[in-house]
């Protein structure tokens, strides 16, 4: 059992959660993730480790409620426990002093960009960050990102903060201006990562993206997380999650992530309905 020791709402339906997991806290490196199973009936869902505190023995995850499992987690209180947390999984980000790195975070993806940015900064890179979201109140980790960046640029789709437009606008400007970029790291919604990869492709700027397919075991045993990278089959849980954005078959990833569309909807409906009645029943018993 893994106790939740801290929780705060970052924006609507996005939670930052601290979990007691001393062994994982000791080992994790930037770019790695955990799989969580909330309860006996639960599925195993992957979440990036955003931060860890070796002394306190805790890891931090940021979760956006999008379906049943993430909603259950979002609804858990400090002091309650998650049944299973396994990790740290995946390959850590390769950290070295690359020179100038542009870290792009889109929406909840910023939760993944942040630890990578922090590690790169510590390795001596010049870190330029571009953080985008739909609007101002959906921005997360703005202060944290500022803390690890030499420059921070904000973009919002509706113009409520920073540049009015997309992260790719700002990145495109840099490239046009002739800024020497040694590496771009982009994490966010799949369309964003694909767009970033397209922007950097003509000038062949090294571009890393972090992929989020559906997973089951997370140990390379099932192949659910397979993606096509440069025409080859790769398992994101053991070979990734980071890959060269110029080689990723994004279309296939988008398609495969829709595999259980019907079932996911049903799960949420059942959950809302059943949880409702269950609560009612409990009241009746009291």
């Amino acid at each position: 059992m893994f106790e939740i020791v801290g929780k705060k709402e970052l924006t609507h339906l996005v939670w930052q959660i601290e979990i007691k997991a001393p062994r994982i806290a000791k080992k994790r490196k930037a770019g790695q993730f955990v799989l969580l199973r909330m309860n006996e009936q639960g599925e195993r869902i992957p979440l990036t480790i955003v931060n860890s505190d070796d002394e306190a023995g805790t890891i931090t995850v940021i979760v956006q409620e999008v379906g049943k499992s993430t909603s259950i987690l979002g609804g858990m209180k400090v002091g309650s426990s998650i049944l299973d947390v396994v990790g740290p999984l995946g390959m850590p980000t390769h950290i070295e002093n690359y020179g100038t790195v542009v870290c792009v975070g889109g929406g909840i993806g910023t939760a993944v960009t942040y630890p990578i940015g922090a590690a790169l900064k510590e390795a001596g890179c010049k870190v330029i960050s571009i953080v985008g979201s739909r609007s101002k109140d959906l921005l997360i980790l703005e202060d944290e990102m500022r803390g690890v960046s030499d420059e921070l640029h904000i973009t919002t789709d509706d113009g409520s903060s920073g540049h009015h437009g997309f992260v790719t606008d700002v990145l495109g400007e840099f490239i046009k201006e002739g800024l020497k970029i040694d590496l771009v790291i982009a994490v966010g919604p799949i369309p964003m990562m694909r767009a970033v990869s397209e922007v950097t492709r003509p000038s062949a700027i090294n571009t890393m993206v972090s992929l989020n397919p559906i997973m089951v075991d997370g140990t390379g045993m099932c192949g659910a997380c397979r993606v096509t990278i440069g025409g080859e089959n790769k398992f994101v849980c053991v070979d990734g999650p980071e890959f060269d954005g110029h080689l990723v078959d994004f279309e296939e990833l988008v398609m495969r992530n829709r595999s259980y569309f019907k079932e996911e909807k049903m799960a949420v409906e059942e959950y809302t309905y059943h949880e409702g009645t269950r609560c009612y029943d409990k009241k009746g018993d009291d």
Binding site: V216, G223, M255, R256, A267, E270
Partner: peptide, 29 residues
């Protein structure tokens, strides 16, 4: 990699370990 193509490991793990045959009582589809 089309939707619906499984490895035996994935298919069986979903059903045995994760008890997908009891979906939606169990969450794994």
């Amino acid at each position: 990699n089309l939707i619906g193509v499984y490895s035996a490991n994935e298919f069986l793990t979903r059903l045995n370990l994760m008890r997908a045959y009891e979906f939606p009582e169990y969450d794994t589809p």
